[in-house]
Simulated assay, not measured.
Amino acid sequence: MSERSQAEIVLGRLLPPPCGQHRPPRQQVQPEMGTGAKVASPRPSGGPARCSTGRTPTAPVDAPDLVAGLQQGGLQARVRAAVSVFAYGEPLPAARDLACRLGAPCEHVREALRAMESAGELALHGRVHRYRLRPGELHPKDVDFDRAVRKAIASRQYPPGTALPVGLLGRSHGVAPLLIARACRRLISDRLVAHRDGPAGPAYYVTPTTAVVADEYSAGTRHGL
């Protein structure tokens, strides 16, 4: 073999192949039987990298968002505790002031207050203040609804076992569909109405009770309104 041929062989081993050409894949040497040696599988050339568990790594979770999500679950309990120091009927601080006291986002505090009002724990006073409702006290917006249902039951307009048309009654007396449960709380507590499953699904039914006190005194004076 000439000296030029030997030089070309040496340069071919040292230099990378020209553009457009690829070297043939290196053949893996299989271990001999009984040696216990493991051969790593070749890594795929395309697609996202994978972690050691074989799963595609996801984007990291933003720490502030994670902390806010964990704290939001107990925020309503903290708002309820902060509100409980005020007397029944006493105007509550604005949501912004409560948020400053609790060190929480103002919008989250407002959501907690709205949830407490929907549950019948608070009531709006005008457009600014809220105040605590006494146990068993009707929400001011539910008084007309409660009074109308009691009168209808007392007059046998809705006899025992009848499903109340709560949607129609709510529209007639200004109670939103999502607040029907709040408006029926006192009716259920006085055993005039029961919420149960029926042929048409869950509904509010007049109970077969005979001890019915369903007049304006029961709906108003009895509940402190």
Rank of each mutant, 00 (worst) to 15 (best):
F145T: 10
A95Y: 01
E117P: 06
P202K: 10
I180H: 03
R110C: 09
A123V: 06
S118C: 07
A211F: 13
Y131F: 10
L138R: 11
Y88N: 11
L102S: 00
L169H: 02
R150M: 12
R101A: 11
A163N: 01
R80F: 08
P91I: 04
C184F: 00
H108V: 08
L113M: 15
E111R: 15
S84M: 14
R182E: 07
G198C: 06
F145I: 10
G89M: 05
R127N: 07
D97W: 00
I180N: 05
V85E: 05
V175G: 03
V109M: 03
G161V: 15
A95C: 12
R150I: 00
S84I: 10
R101S: 09
H108Q: 15
E117I: 06
R156A: 09
I180G: 04
G198L: 04
A176L: 07
R114D: 15
R156S: 12
E117F: 07
S84K: 14
A104K: 03
R134K: 15
V109D: 03
A194Y: 09
L102E: 05
L192D: 05
E111I: 11
D146K: 01
R182Q: 11
L113C: 07
G89R: 03
T210E: 15
G161I: 15
E121V: 12
A163D: 00
V193K: 01
A183C: 05
E111V: 08
R114L: 13
P91Y: 04
T209I: 07
T209E: 14
V143H: 08
D146Y: 04
S155R: 14
I180Y: 03
L192C: 08
L124I: 02
R127G: 01
C106M: 14
D197S: 14
V175E: 02
V193L: 05
P199K: 06
A99K: 04
A87M: 05
R80V: 12
Q157A: 13
P208W: 07
R186T: 13
R78P: 04
A112G: 00
A194G: 06
G174P: 02
